[in-house]
């Protein structure tokens, strides 16, 4: 039971560090110093400490609650070293769909803001989801099929059985590549960040979010980065034998899209779809073909 409290907490802390890492990577790539160590935390505290905030109604507020809560629930489905949480009760497919709940919550909350910039952002975000989820489910299918199970615990056990040689990335390099590609889009980082587009639709979904609303989204971002990194680690990098290797893997995984992100401008929505349906999806299918035949 204590696991269920510790897992989201760990996820949040790791997520904060990831946000920092992301901003630092960005700064270094632009030859800047970047934010101080606790900057993500200060941001969140500041936002929650706002004294006047505008709400557009109950759904606006509940949307944020759902966005945070969905991730809090979802991370308990991802086993950590020594902690299985609810991984036995849920499994991979349930996890993938649980991770859509925050998006749904956010979409509802944004919808009630009555700001078309937000709605456009959501429309683009959902379109992007349509794009990246296809390689994502191909990857999920491939892994689940390869290990003959949708239980993440069993998948990790199978990977850890023979060291690096039995890791997903060694067994299924094509799928691992497709997964990485899909993760880039899933995180909404450049070149796939059209739905935020600060200069044209005023950060899209976040346009009417201030104070604790934005703070909630910052928290959600921590979870999101963690979830993406952890999921990839669990599927392809053998999960965590111990905390040290787990953290190294998770950060390494997230560092890749971060580093790529700041080198690119962004694609238009339809180009996102076209690109993601073409390359990672095709590579993923090829990977599955190799697995099956």
């Amino acid at each position: 039971m204590i696991e269920l409290i510790l897992m989201p907490l760990a996820a949040f802390v790791i997520g904060l560090a990831m946000v920092l890492m992301m901003r630092r990577i960005g700064a270094r790539l632009q030859r800047r110093v970047g934010p101080p160590l606790l900057q993500p935390l200060w941001d969140i505290i500041k936002l929650h400490g706002k004294e006047t905030q505008t709400s557009h109604g109950l759904i606006h507020e509940l949307g944020i609650v759902m966005a945070i809560g969905g991730f809090v629930a979802a991370v308990t489905l991802m086993p950590l070293p020594g902690m299985n949480g609810l991984a036995e009760q849920g499994g991979l497919i349930a996890l993938v769909y649980m991770m859509m709940i925050p998006s749904l919550g956010l979409a509802l909350g944004v919808g009630q803001c009555a700001n078309p910039n937000g709605s456009i952002g959501i429309s683009r975000a959902l379109t992007a989801m349509l794009a990246y989820d296809i390689p994502m489910v191909i990857v999920v299918f491939g892994v689940a099929f390869f290990y003959g199970s949708t239980s993440l615990v069993q998948i990790i056990d199978a990977q850890q059985a023979g060291g690096f040689a039995t890791w997903g990335i060694a067994e299924m390099p094509l799928l691992a590549f497709a997964g990485l590609f899909a993760m880039q889009a899933m995180l909404g980082k450049q070149p796939f960040e059209i739905y935020v587009a600060p200069a044209e639709i005023a950060t899209g979904p976040m346009v009417e979010m201030g104070g604790k609303f934005l703070g909630g989204l910052f928290i959600m971002q921590c979870f999101q980065l963690y979830a993406a990194g952890a999921l990839y680690t669990l599927l392809f990098l053998g999960g965590g034998e111990n905390w040290l290797t787990f953290l190294i893997k998770v950060f390494a995984v997230v560092a890749i899209p971060m580093s790529i992100a700041f080198l690119f401008p962004r694609y238009r929505t339809e180009d996102v779809v076209r690109l993601v349906w073409k390359w990672p999806a095709m590579i993923g299918l090829l990977g599955i073909a190799f697995l099956m035949y």
Binding site: L4, P8, H48, G49, K50, E51, T52, Q53, T54, S55, H56, G57, E61, I64, V65, M66, A67, I68, G69, G70, F71, V72, A73, A74, T76, L77, L86, M98, I101, G211, K212, G215, G216, I219
Partner: peptide, 23 residues
Amino acid sequence: ILMAGFGVGALIFFGLGGRSKRV
């Protein structure tokens, strides 16, 4: 766990966040 997560979310949002006004 989803309900618990929503509870946590609500706690963070309503408990830690300041007052807000509907506009």
